[in-house]
Amino acid sequence: MDVLNKGKPGFLGLGAEEARVRVTKLPAEETDRASVIMAKEMLGRLLDLMRVPASVSVRELQLLGATTGHVPIALDISGEDLGILIGRRGQTLSSLQYLAYLIVSHQMKARVHLSIDVEGYRERRQEALRNLALRMAEQVKATGHSVTLEPMPAGERRIIHLALQDYPGVTTHSIGEGEARKVTILCQR
């Protein structure tokens, strides 16, 4: 913020001049950089408090666009025996990512998208889900009976939908609400 003219108080309100300032909005790029630094530090602090010895790194490729282009800041946690940070069906990792997102967004006063991975878990899980989707689609086509998968969070359901969007002979839908929402693979007539 630059002060162009401090203004004059005038005398008894006579001859007063209003102050003029120029307010420059922080460029999105700088907000992104600040968010990345903040996210990394904050996650390190959370892990310290949880007494989980691990290190946090930022995936450089996706450094920019977190506050503007909806590109998440990708953080990788590495260390030994980090299964406890993943939890059943990735529940602990989801909680960690959600709280981290809330903290950074609250501090930056903007929605900052974060994607946290532990020792390549998300990559492996994606691969496993894609394989599952293809296997089930094969089965649906062979038997003509639809198959409903176990409940999954939105990101995982999306992987199933995408894996089968061009698969001939089947369609996918999500059914159920909230935590219980799951994907059904149907035979296409």
Binding site: M50, I84, S95, Y98, L99, L102
Partner: peptide, 18 residues
Amino acid sequence: QGRVAQAMRTLLRVMAVR
């Protein structure tokens, strides 16, 4: 739907179980 409280409980559980 209690999502924030639930997430805090999940992290607490990790520490408690240990």
